[in-house]
């Protein structure tokens, strides 16, 4: 067998997407309900008492941050469980013994996880239109950020799934690192609202750049420049890619 194993990539992608359909309620409906609750609480109850941020009312301002919050958590969760579960059940032997390269395997798993996240992001976007007035100044950039963030954090989730030795470790990074960074990364506020030194400290949080870039694609305004947002997101993508290549080269936590 020579060339790219397209059948193998498609088999993994289809299997992972079928898993989503089997757990449709958990995979799609739960994040939609959770996000709607955010809109009701932060957008409706609390947001009505907050002034506009720049030229954007607070309810609309929340939309990119909430989508980004879901993208990060869903991408990590989907990709990490996708590779961790075969390790846990022992079915990983089939992946390791198949004529499929590391890159092809990653395309299958990460592609499926990113697809799910993008679908969820779009569903949240549509849901939000029922709660707040929406405008998207740069739709192509919005879609590009949606895809880039989903792929990057699906790769990050894939790494966590390989690293994790148990379900506790599987949840520890998203719960103790990603969610706090997202909450502190300007999902619900502009970092310009923070006093110094917290504003400067926030600039070391990579999620700030993701949220800011995504928000720029909606309203043409962000906490940092679009160049910085793209640069940091691209850098994180390359870092994840490098780690995955190293994992497959060394067989880290996959092979004895």
């Amino acid at each position: 067998m020579t060339g790219v194993n397209f059948h193998g990539i498609w088999a993994i992608y289809k299997f992972e997407m079928a898993r989503t359909l089997r757990t449709l309620w958990q995979s799609v409906v739960t994040p939609v309900i959770t996000t709607s609750l955010y809109f009701i609480v932060f957008g409706g109850a609390i947001g009505s008492r907050i002034d506009s941020i720049g030229s954007v009312n607070y309810g609309s301002f929340l939309v990119p941050g909430l989508i980004m919050l879901s993208l990060l958590t869903q991408s990590i969760a989907n990709a990490s469980i996708g590779i961790y579960f075969p390790k846990f059940t022992g079915t990983v032997f089939e992946l390791l013994s198949a004529p499929i390269s590391a890159v092809e395997m990653v395309i299958g798993f990460v592609g499926a996880a990113a697809t799910k996240s993008i679908v969820i992001g779009l569903i949240i976007l549509i849901t939000s239109a029922f709660f707040v007035p929406l405008r998207i100044d740069h739709p192509a950039a919005m879609l590009a950020f949606l895809v880039l963030t989903s792929v990057t954090f699906s790769m990050f989730g894939f790494i966590i799934g390989i690293w994790a030795k148990g379900f506790e470790q599987l949840n520890i990074v998203p719960a103790l690192l990603v969610t706090p960074l997202t909450f502190l990364g300007g999902a619900f506020y502009s970092i310009d609202m923070l006093p110094e030194p917290w504003r400067t400290v926030s600039l070391f949080n990579p999620v700030v750049y993701l949220v800011s870039g995504f928000r720029w694609s909606f309203f043409g305004q962000g906490d940092v420049s679009i160049g910085w947002s793209l640069g940091v997101t691209g850098l994180f993508l390359l870092l994840c890619l490098g780690l995955i290549i190293a994992i497959f080269r060394t067989g880290y936590r996959l092979k004895n």
Binding site: N5, H7, W10, A11, A18, E94, P99, I100
Partner: peptide, 16 residues
């Protein structure tokens, strides 16, 4: 959770 037929199709595809 897979069916017998679908897991066979998966294996065949995985092996290219």
């Amino acid at each position: 959770f897979s069916t017998v037929a679908s897991t066979m199709r998966f294996s065949r595809g995985l092996f290219g």
